[in-house]
Design a binder for these strands. Structure first.
Lengths: 211, 211
DNA sequence: CGGCATCCACAGTGATACTG
DNA sequence: CAGTATCACTGTGGATGCCG
C-alpha cells in the first residue's frame, strides 16, 4: 500500500497489514497452520483469486509469510506464517474483541466457515485448571471440519483447524451450543438437549469456562 | 468500505475501521482529545481534505466519533471520540507494538509531529510507584506542542497533547532523549548532556521506568 | 485440479481548485 | 476555517484463460 509518510509506529504497521484482505489471510494461516492456495481460497469466500495471489506475494516480501514446497505426499506448495507473522496474534485478538458486538447486526447472507470458531474459542474460553495434565478436545463442525482445542498450561487455550489422534473428548453439534458449553454458559445436559453429541469423560469439558 | 460478507468478528471490525486513514484519525483524537477539523489536518500530514471530511462522516455514522459545537470561546465544531471509539485503544496499542520495529527502516523524509510521542510513552513507560501520589510531567517538544504525562495509579501512564496548570516537572529537549530518560535508559546527567532541560524535583522523573 | 495471469468495469484515493 | 467539487489515477472484484 502507498506509504503514509509518517514517522509513527501505528502508521508503519498499517502500511504493512492495512491492505484489504491481508489480516483475514493472517487469520486463516493462524487457525489452519500451513495452507495450500486452494485452502486459503475456500477459507476466504469473496476474495478474487488475483488479489489472493498478489497479497501472498506482498506478505512474503514483508516477511509475514513463507512459501515452502510440501513434504513428499503433497504435490503442492504450502504457505505458512513466519514468527513475525505470528506476532500479529495480539492485533487479531484486539480486533476480534472489538468487533464481536458487530456480529449482532450481521447480514443473513454472510458466509460462515466452521473453523472461524477458533477465534471466539481462544478469546472467550479459559482453562480453569491449568496446573493439571493438558487435555485436547476435538470439536466437529459441519461434516468435514474439525477444530482441536487444547490447554496450553497458562490458563488460555489454543484452537486450530486440525485433527487429533486421541482427543480426551469429542464434541459435535451446532457451533453456538459447543461454544456455550465450553464457556460454561450451559451444562452438558442442556447442551445435549440442544443437539450436542458428547464422547469422553464429562469432567474434561467441565475444566473449561468463560473469561 | 465494502463488506467482506463473512460472519466473523475480525472481518466485521475491519469493515468498520479498516479504511485507509481511519485508525490514524482515531490516533489523533486519542492523543489530542476533542479536535477541530484543522487540528486534525495538521496532525495528519498527507491526508486529502476531501478524504478527511468523508472519513469523519463515516466514523460518525459508525458511532466512533461525535461532532459537537464547542463551548462559547471557540467558534467552531469539535470532533471527539465516543466511548466505543475509545475502546479501540487496545487495537492501537497492539498495532503500535507490532509496528515499532518498522521505524528502523523509516524514510528520511517521513513527517514527524511531536505529539505522536504520546504513543511510545504510553507503550513503553511505566510508573514504578503507583501507590504514591499521582504526578504530572510536562514534556515540551518543538516550540509550541506540549505533552502531559500523568500517572494513572495502576502502574501505567497516560499521555495527551494538552497543557497542564502546575506540572510536577517540566522537560524539554529532543524527543529521543526525553523518551530515553522516561524509560530509565538514561539518567538525568546523561540526558542533560544530550540537550535536555529539566525543571522540578529530580525524583519525579526517577519514578518512571521502561516496561 | 492447483495456481496463478489477464482483462475490464467500477469504486476508492489524492492533488488541486474553489466556496461560504 | 471548514469544508465541497472536480478529475486523473490506482485498487478491487468478477470473469475468464492458461499451463503443468
Amino acid at each position: 500500500m502507498r506509504s503514509y509518510g509518517q514517522f509513527c509506529a501505528l502508521a508503519k504497521a498499517l502500511e504493512t497489514i492495512g491492505d484489504r484482505w491481508t489480516l483475514l489471510i493472517v487469520r486463516e494461516l493462524m487457525i489452519r497452520g500451513a495452507c495450500r492456495y486452494t485452502d486459503l481460497r475456500t477459507g476466504l469466500p469473496g476474495i478474487a483469486t488475483n488479489l489472493l495471489a498478489e497479497r501472498l506475494k506482498e506478505m512474503e516480501a514483508a516477511g509475514l509469510v513463507v512459501r515452502e514446497s510440501a513434504p513428499p505426499p503433497i504435490a503442492t506448495d504450502l504457505f505458512r506464517l513466519t514468527a513475525r507473522g505470528e506476532e500479529l496474534d495480539p492485533v487479531i485478538a484486539a480486533l476480534g474483541l472489538w468487533g464481536a458486538p458487530l456480529l449482532a447486526k450481521a447480514d443473513e447472507k454472510d458466509a460462515f466457515r466452521p473453523h472461524w470458531m477458533a477465534l471466539p474459542v481462544r478469546l472467550y474460553v479459559r482453562d480453569k485448571s491449568p496446573a493439571e495434565q493438558p487435555v485436547k478436545v476435538e470439536m466437529r463442525v459441519g461434516r468435514e471440519e474439525t477444530l482441536t482445542v487444547e490447554t496450553v498450561g497458562d490458563g488460555s487455550v489454543r484452537a486450530r483447524a486440525v485433527r487429533t489422534e486421541h482427543p480426551d473428548a469429542r464434541l459435535e453439534g451446532p457451533p453456538q451450543v459447543m461454544l456455550g458449553l465450553m464457556m460454561g454458559k450451559m451444562d452438558l445436559a442442556a447442551a445435549r438437549a440442544k443437539g450436542l453429541k458428547y464422547e469422553g469423560d464429562p469432567r474434561v469439558v467441565g475444566r473449561f469456562g468463560g473469561k
